[in-house]
Design a protein around this nucleic acid. Sequence first.
DNA 1: CCCCATGTTCGACA
DNA 2: GTGTCGAACATGGG
Length: 278
Amino acid sequence: MPELAEVEYYRRQWLPALGETVSRTHIRPSARVFRNTAPDRIPAAVEGHDFREALAHGKQMLFRFGDDAWLLIRLGMAGKLERGDPAMVPAKHDHLVLFTAKHALAFNDYRMFGSTTLVESAKLPDFWRNLPPMPHEPGFTRDHVGTFLRRRAKAPVKAVLLIQERFPGIGNWMADEVLWRARIHPAYPAGRILGRKLSDLHRSLREVTEDALRVIAPDWSDPPDDWLFNHRWRDGGTCPATGKPLRRETIGGRTTCYSPAHQKWPPGLRRASMDGGT
DNA sequence: CCCCATGTTCGACA
DNA sequence: GTGTCGAACATGGG
């Protein structure tokens, strides 16, 4: 489920336990989510230490315990963070659970595309300090977007928006929402988005990110019906802007939903394989 | 049984 | 180097 806004929601699930001491851990060391780390080290690294920081950036989270233990968590396709009471009994897919006097903090992921990594460091890990700006942050400028689109000039813009090194936190549904709001065809070559269209795309990235955070992060509210979101997977879904039918296609390897009437293919360039559709 | 899924990575190939 | 495609990972839902 998790893109930037859902990740922020999950980070907040663990937040009430900040300042509490980890007294006990439950771990399923054979779970694939530990493939990048040594799970045996986790209990000793966090038990007896206080839960000190909870950070989120794009699709990843970083939690600090005591002076020098950090847990990096990526949720993959189906991962979740949950908070229960200390008597909570770990279920089948609760691969990591941290117990304090008042809470149980669980990392649950039945598909195990997610992962967690123990980082033992007295300071914020370097890779975290060097992360690219998220779309709602000040460094995320129009030029920042334009430069990257030119570097991937021939790729469909939809595929480019999914690249985390430049668009941290943008996933499949947010990318579709962004393009729909900016009225850009998802298969259009990234390098041909210039001038006013580039401004539209940049603005849409900021707005969708800010709106998604506002709506989803506090309590996982449903987005309003004037977003593409509520219409995108329903068979026979219609565009909230035009009332015309939505279309689903695989673009950049992912199922993509767009509104052909709203996101027209600009004149002057033919689509590579499929017909343009206006 | 079939297909699909809000993700990432890797190898093969043009 | 660019870009595309399919497979793999593991599980559940329709």
